[in-house]
Design a protein around this nucleic acid. Structure first.
Length: 501
DNA sequence: TAATATTACCTTTTT
DNA sequence: GGTAATATTA
């Protein structure tokens, strides 16, 4: 291909991008790179174009690997990718898949004449076990004694085993007896899985790591396979995934990671923000590019979003600026408004009234709007109230948990659940009500009984940020004063997050 | 061993 | 308020 055509294709790949986006897409291939992409700053555009750029300037398409967390994200990326110039759809495409999907692919392969599953001790392709099946196996491989000593039931044991696998150093803090028991149970479990020819989701990555740690020839086989490795939503990687990634990296290739530490909301399931926060330690020589121009929200909403992390140290602090709306007062948009209601029923009524009014005045269809919640319980309740008031033939706004809303955008957002202990979510101190004989005894024999408040406030704050940044034009911050929780009426104070904006 | 009584626990979710 | 694990009875 002559140089002129090549340049034309590169031009079209960076066409319409802002300077930092361009810089990210065309970054020299030879070093690791982290793109810190603020919410709504065009990270998928950068990622897909970067893949096309690599394919076009650097290597064969099948030597590019892009990893995501969900199949949906992988599919989305593939469909956007094939539309880009620089991508040749007549040959093998870049590998775009999930971490689990790629792990599974490795496990099914044969290296140097031996099947990878065989090296791991399996006779045939194992069967995937999930949910209850796994719990019943866990019941078989542990004794009641062991669970008693650990002080857990089967579900909590499952949690412990999972955490041990994902994040071993957290388990190191347990008493030695507990560690030993966990070790035994985990040992039994993996023996059982081999015996019965089962595996579980986490094994799709875990077994790859086992394989790589036992067979150096396999390490070199996979480390040579790719010239460019890209990872989406890098802030959500767990230590296992980072391990797998490190094994795929070598002196012959580099990592291009895209993520936003401000949107790390999966710590509860083992994601670790360490690697994104200390990217240059993990990946020496790395360059960091920030994307701060937002193409989603009005300046008023961005101002609110920027206030949430105003106390962050500068290296990772992002200040979102609008690349979509002008500076005129009209373009600036209305400030997020806060409303408080007696209960969810009243709130539901208000959402309908306001939504319909906005539909009429702003010509934004009611079904395009979204109501976001911290927990499913209040979501379900509010949604059922709204259905009850509107009947079932009306198309409703989207009802989502904030977790479920990540990556999406809506012209109008009703951000609900903004009460202390709901959002941020934490366990309230035990109330003084007496439900059991035990409660009565405690009431008689103890004066104070503080329950530990457990919750990762930083993660809650990031979750709040995710909620706020879903809104394009209008954002409402809603709370209720009382609600039924676990069957009992409780009185709630407004969320501390309301004071941030 | 099986029934019945009592207590402890409750987010967020993908593969 | 609903469930699941555990304790207590017959």
């Amino acid at each position: 291909m002559n140089r002129k055509i090549k340049d034309t294709i590169i031009d079209s790949l960076v066409n319409g991008l802002n300077p930092p986006q361009k810089k990210a897409v065309t970054m020299p291939i030879g070093r690791h790179c982290l793109i810190l992409a603020g919410a709504g700053c065009g990270k998928t555009a950068v990622l897909t174009r970067r893949i096309a750029f690599c394919a076009h300037t650097h290597c064969e398409q099948n030597r590019i690997l892009a990893l995501t967390f969900t199949r949906k994200a992988a599919e989305e990326m593939k469909s956007r990718l094939i539309k880009l110039s620089g991508i040749n759809t007549n040959t093998v495409l870049p590998v775009v898949t999930t971490f689990h999907g790629y792990g599974l692919k490795i496990l099914r392969e044969t290296v140097n004449g031996i099947r990878n599953t065989e090296r791991l001790g399996y006779k045939a392709e194992p069967q995937l076990i999930t949910g209850d099946e796994r719990l019943s196996i866990l019941a078989d491989v542990s004794t009641i004694e062991q669970r008693k000593t650990l002080g857990v039931n089967i579900k909590a044991l499952d949690d412990l085993i999972a955490r041990r696998a994902v994040n071993p150093h957290k388990v190191n803090q347990l008493p030695e007896v507990s560690q030993r028991i966990l070790e035994e149970v985990a040992e039994n479990l993996s023996r059982m899985k081999i015996e019965k020819n089962f595996w579980e989701f986490s094994d799709m990555i875990l077994k790859v790591l086992t394989l790589l740690s036992q067979y150096p020839d396999i390490v070199s086989h996979y480390a040579k396979k790719f010239s460019c490795i890209l990872v989406d939503e890098f802030q959500d990687t767990n230590p296992l995934q980072i391990n797998m990634l490190s094994s795929l990296l070598s002196s012959e290739n580099n990592l291009f990671a895209v993520g936003d530490d401000d949107q790390a909301i999966y710590g509860f399931r083992g994601a670790d923000i360490g690697p994104i926060m200390h990217f240059q330690d993990h990946f020496p020589g790395a360059e960091i590019v920030k994307l701060e121009t937002n193409y989603r929200s009005t300046p008023s909403i961005l101002n609110a979003a920027n206030r949430i992390f105003s106390d962050k140290p500068p290296q990772y602090r992002k200040i979102l600026k609008s690349g979509k709306f002008g500076r005129s007062k009209e373009d600036h948009g209305q400030k997020p408004k806060k409303y408080s209601f007696v209960n969810h029923s009243e709130m539901a009524e208000w959402i309908i009234k306001t939504g319909k009014l906005i539909e009429k005045e702003e010509a934004i269809p009611f079904p395009d709007m979204a109501a976001l919640f911290r927990v499913n319980e209040t979501l379900d309740y509010t949604k059922s109230e709204i259905v009850r008031k509107l009947g079932t033939d009306t198309t409703l706004p989207a009802f989502l948990t904030v977790h479920g809303s990540k990556g999406l955008e809506f012209p109008v957002v009703f951000l609900c659940d903004l009460e202390e202990s709901v959002f941020p979510s934490y366990r309230l101190r035990r109330s003084h009500r007496i439900r059991t004989w035990g409660d009565l005894l405690k009431k008689i024999f103890t004066k104070k009984k503080p329950d530990d408040i457990e919750c990762d406030f930083d993660e809650e704050k990031r979750l709040f940020y995710v909620g706020v940044t879903r809104a394009e034009k209008i954002l409402f911050l809603l709370s209720v004063k009382e609600m039924k929780m676990h069957g009992r009426k409780v009185f709630l104070r407004p969320s501390r997050f309301l004071r941030l904006l």
